[in-house]
Computed example of a mutant assay.
Amino acid sequence: MAVEISKGVYWVGAVDWGIRKFHGYELSTHRGSSYNAYLIVDEKVALIDTVWEPFSDRLLDNIREIVDPSKIDYVVANHAEMDHSGALPEVIRIATNATLITSKRGLESIPGHFHQNWNIHAVSNGEHLPLGSSELLFIDAPMLHWPDSMFTYLSGRNILMPNDAFGQHYAAAFRFNDEVDQEELYEEALKYYANILTPFSDLVLKKIDELLSLQIPVDIIAPSHGVIWRKDPLKIVKNYQEWARQIPQKGAVILYDTMWKATLRMAEAISGGLTVKGIPNKLIHLAASDRNDVIVEVFKAKAVIIGSPTLNSGILPTVAPMLEDFRGLKFKNKVGAAFGSYGWSDEAVDKIEEALSEAGIKVAAKSIKAKWQPDEAALDCCRQLGEELAEEIAR
């Protein structure tokens, strides 16, 4: 059902309790998600974003609780990705007189997805659109997280609708941040940032500075996924500034997979060396872990230590995808090391070191290779590796 979030402004989206994988690269959504769309009823009627196509009927039903969808004057597409724009064909089929508002880059992405001859108006950064007692302000936000992304601000109601920024994949019975479990909420907000926005951290800081420089009052931040921030809404903005600076905690994660427990024993010895030096650390068995949850742990820690036995002259297939993620996420301010066991050849450790360097993670300690099962001398070397990295982490 529709929920009024401010006078004349309604959430008309859909909650997806059952989704567990999101996007083409399958971001895990253990707590579901939502597709948030916002209806503004003034002298003109505006719909800000839509929902994923399977939820089109729910969106239209929610709109009908407030107004006849054919009366919509403007449909704003802040971003063309299908979880936001999927219902556009159904909405525009009914709202035949509506103007579709996009960013300049949206002139490419929206027609590229739908191949329809719609009435599209591309707005410039800072352009205003009067609705009556309120007006919309459009703010370009390229690469947060697509080139076509923009924010929409509703003056008179002081509502920022930033599409994918400040969101969470979090299904909830209630719509507002002060109505849900705070630990769950911030876990999902951090997971969302770490997995989606980390590569754009410099742009995040720049855009937040630009946004704050506008000195527009913000009473509500209404993202396109998860709950709406109405209590202390700028707290999540401050969180984003902190996360975007990527100042890690003084801790380590040891990521590994193992075939016959040789690499596991090495991981435990490295953990022992870190622990002796008082450095918090976690061992994460990649074969039994969700990769998006692992990325959150890596995001928080200063050191990432990766272990794999050699298989077919390379890295285990449970380990290699994480290294590919690291290349794309472009983590900052991290150090790393590699370790692993081998039998007939020992290429895995060298390939891990190479991948860490390519991802911008400084290899800060000599990596360890153990032939067959590690003997006590090899395990001592692993403990020394942990102690050496502990000194690097503590700096």
Rank of each mutant, 00 (worst) to 15 (best):
L185W: 02
A171S: 10
L137G: 03
Y153G: 03
F151H: 01
A222N: 02
Q215D: 15
N125V: 02
H128K: 15
L203C: 11
Y170G: 06
L190C: 07
Y153M: 08
L136P: 03
I221P: 02
N195Q: 07
E127I: 08
F176K: 02
E187F: 12
E210V: 10
L214G: 10
I216T: 09
L197Q: 07
P199H: 11
D178R: 13
L185P: 01
P223R: 01
E188P: 02
L137F: 04
F138G: 00
N125C: 06
L185T: 04
P223T: 03
K207Q: 11
A171G: 06
S213C: 11
F176C: 07
I221W: 03
E179I: 07
L197N: 06
P147H: 07
Y192S: 09
E187W: 06
A172Q: 03
E135P: 04
P130V: 06
H145Q: 14
P130N: 10
V180W: 04
L137N: 04
D181H: 10
M161I: 13
M150S: 02
V123E: 02
P130A: 09
Y192R: 08
V218E: 06
E135A: 10
A171I: 00
S201V: 12
P147N: 09
E135K: 03
N163R: 03
V180G: 00
G132H: 05
L129E: 03
Q215N: 15
F174Y: 11
S155R: 03
N177C: 07
I208V: 12
N163H: 08
Q182A: 14
F151E: 01
